[in-house]
Design a protein around this nucleic acid. Sequence first.
RNA 1: GCCCUCGUAGUUCAACGGACAGAACGGAGGUUUCCUAAACCUUAAAUCGAGGUUCGAUUCCUCGCGAGGGUACCA
Length: 569
Amino acid sequence: MTRKIIAILEKVAGRAAEFEVLPSAKPEFGHYSTNLPLRLGKKRGENPLALARELAYKIRQQAPPDLFAKVDVAEPGFINFWLSEKATQEEFAEIAADADYGRLDLLKGKRVMVEYTDPNPFKQFHIGHLMTNVIGESIARLYEANGAEVLRANYQGDVGTHVAKSIWGMMRLESELPNESAPLDKKVELLGRAYAAGAKAYKENEAAKAGIDGLNKKIYERSDPAVNKLYDQGRKWSLDHFETLYARLGTKFVHYFFESEVGSVGLEIVRAHPDVFVESQGAVIFQGENYGLHNRVFINSLGLPTYEAKELGLNKLKFDLYHPDASLVITANEINEYFRVLMKAMELVMPEVAKKTTHIGHGMLRLPSGKMSSRTGEVIAAETLIEQIKEAVAKKVAGRKELTKKEQEEIKEKVALSAIRYSVLKQGIGRDIVFDINKSISFQGDSGPYLQYTYARLRSILRKAKSEKVKMKNWDSRKLATEEESVLIRKMAEFPDIVERGVKTHAPNILATYLYELANTANVLYEAEPILKDEDKSRRAARLVLVETAANVLKNGLGFLGIETPEKI
RNA sequence: GCCCUCGUAGUUCAACGGACAGAACGGAGGUUUCCUAAACCUUAAAUCGAGGUUCGAUUCCUCGCGAGGGUACCA
């Protein structure tokens, strides 16, 4: 609808200035508002209110008849539009007819690589990785919703000190190593203990530290068959475990990059550009200080590539292999500064890659006790969190005799994941989340379960209508005329704009907020008047189609956030 | 020290330079013969401080205060 109004405004005023058409902030400002006269008045040095009156007059003359019920002006120079009942009904007929409503083709033909999650083999998949996954998945889906082809990538650190610590621990626990046929959770449990033991020893024991550093070198060189065996074993266990999580989280990566494979590529790039990278104190560094940033080491004094050099290699590989039109890297924002330096270096050595690469830093997950850090040993595993939430959901479904065991299990899983997802996605991407398991994941109010509940009760009406063989064919949108119905229709009409803005600004929270508002308007309609008891059969049919369409929009929108919508909850 | 974020009701968060700063939880009160009360409605409650730019500033600029992150061989 805003597109139609923009077209009319451009017809009467020309493309003389930047302006916006937005759903009105208050009912007294109509259904849609524009600031065009304010912007145009400023540009031309004319009185905006007079301009608004003049434009409003032209719009009344030139707009299609029956589109607006009223066009009015307001201080200091807004034009407000009231949609006619007929236009609202026609809008709804269009929305209802489109099964893919909300799927756009603005980015059709574009290929976008999105890298996210990035856990480290041999280490825990913790709630920080979960958060990155949730955000990355929603951004990937928003791109898909806008028509882009999305390639999901995951970059996993399979070399480095953390690996050496784990191998060291595995050696201590050799007698307890499960064999290959043991269940995965046993293997993961052992890896967890191995890493903890290695990390502790590294900090507290000089001899162990030297041993681990030595192991690190052996791992890098693959020079010791016994070490290689443990390495290959542990790496596989870890990756198999991650795979179960990706399946559970609904993420399908097309490519897994590993630190072990990008190092040599990065080294070559750095070595090939002595003009950009210089020697300093035995290392090879990039002098970010020349660009108002800070210096960073790309090759350490042992001649090994650091994370920085590896990242250059990684990004080169992405483009060599897939030639994306855009490449996004999603990580926690603690590495924002590091990435700025990296991007500057990248601009100098591979400008075409740098131009298409964007880093998106998201906020950190914090515990009420303070920061979440893998060094304090206070991290919570992703699975632990999910299980805790599931227990809370279980209490809700326990007494529901009409649900089968299978349905209950499905509800527990999907509701728990939606609670987590929504609480992460409803706020701005860059902001930290204080994660109090008891409080921050609520099932009431502005929450994932609320949205799922709304969907389920809408579907419940439709199920009942079907079982009672209530007819929905030959419905007539002209039967929809109450305030609740019109508000819901206009809310649904906002959906495409939201999907577009969400991807342009990389802001899933815009969509989350929208869906909450949509659910609220749907619930208001639900409470206002029982639909199935409507004596007017034709009106009842139209209202059922309205319910069906609202449920569809909810389902599509939640899908873009990665939130599933069970039929029953 | 320098660089980068951030500071909004009691709490957790919104607000793409726009109109009277929105929600949720918590507080006070109300709505269940109905398709699921995980709901709906009413109500009290906030922009860190001081300047500036603008018709208009939570948003942009400057200074101050406060919190977090980064600042050479971790990522």
